[in-house]
C-alpha cells in the first residue's frame, strides 16, 4: 500500500459518501444519472467476484463490501425510494447502457490477461469503469444546473482515478515487474474523460461562479 493508493481509495470512498449524503439527507437525486450508478454497481460486481475466494487483506475485503453495498444502495434509492425517485430525471437520463457494456465486453473477450471467466469479468469491469461516467457527463450537459454536491461528487470520482495513476507510476518504479496495461490504459482513458469537467470545475472555483458546462 502506498500513500497515492490510500488517498485514492479514500477519495473514492468520499465521492460515494457525498452522493449518499445528498440522496439520504435532502432526499434528492437531481442531476444524478441512474445509468451511471447502475454501471458502477455492475463494475464492482464484476471486479469483486473474488471477494469470497481470494483474501488479500481486511482493508481490501472491507472496502470491497463498502463499494458493493453503497453502489447497490444508491441504485435502490434512485429506483425505489418513494421520495428520492421523484427527483430522478428519467427523460434526460437516456444514455443506453448496452452501447457501453457491449463494446467493453467484446474488448474484454479479445484483450485480457488470461481467458478465464473471472479474468474476463475483471477486465470487463476496468473497461466499463472507464466509460461509466459518460451518462452522467451527458446528463450534466443537458440539465445545466449542477448543484454543489453533484459537482463535488464528480470531482472526487475523477480525482480518485487520477490518484490511482500516480499509484501505478509509483508501483511501476518501486516494484520489479509490476506491469498491468489493462488497468493503466483504462484508468488513463477514464481520467481523460473527466478532463473538460475538471477544467470547468476549476474555472468555476477560480472565478467563484456556479459550475456551468457548455451545451
Amino acid at each position: 500500500m502506498n500513500i497515492f493508493r490510500l488517498t485514492a481509495d479514500m477519495t473514492h470512498l468520499m465521492s460515494v459518501i457525498v452522493l449518499l449524503l445528498k440522496i439520504h439527507t435532502i432526499k434528492s437525486c437531481a442531476g444524478i444519472s441512474l445509468k451511471t450508478q447502475e454501471l458502477y454497481a455492475i463494475v464492482f460486481t464484476c471486479r469483486y467476484l473474488d471477494i469470497f475466494t481470494d483474501f488479500i487483506s481486511f482493508y481490501n475485503t472491507i472496502m470491497k463490501v463498502i463499494f458493493l453495498w453503497t453502489s447497490f444502495s444508491i441504485v435502490w434509492y434512485m429506483r425505489y425510494h418513494k421520495i428520492v425517485r421523484r427527483s430522478y430525471d428519467k427523460d434526460q437520463d437516456t444514455f443506453r447502457h448496452v452501447f457501453l457494456m457491449l463494446p467493453c465486453l467484446v474488448l474484454a473477450l479479445l484483450i485480457n490477461e488470461r481467458f478465464t471467466f473471472k479474468e474476463v469479468m475483471w477486465t470487463f469491469s476496468f473497461y466499463l469503469e472507464a466509460v461509466a461516467i459518460l451518462p452522467q457527463l451527458v446528463l450534466l450537459q443537458r440539465t445545466r444546473n449542477i448543484d454543489n454536491l453533484t459537482g463535488q461528487y464528480i470531482f472526487l470520482l475523477g480525482a480518485y482515478r487520477a490518484l490511482y495513476i500516480l499509484n501505478w507510476i509509483y508501483r511501476y518504479v518501486t516494484e520489479p515487474n509490476y506491469v498491468h496495461w489493462i488497468p493503466w490504459m483504462s484508468g488513463l482513458v477514464q481520467t481523460l474523460l473527466y478532463g473538460d469537467f475538471f477544467y470547468y470545475y476549476f474555472l468555476s472555483w477560480k472565478n467563484n461562479v456556479k459550475l456551468q458546462l457548455p451545451a
Binding site: 481509495d9 481470494d54 481490501n60 472496502m63 475483471w122 499509484n167
Partner: peptide
C-alpha cells in the same frame, strides 16, 4: 497464484 497477488487493488 501470482496473478491474484497482483489483484491487490480495488
Amino acid at each position: 497464484n501470482p496473478t491474484y497477488k497482483s489483484k491487490d487493488e480495488l
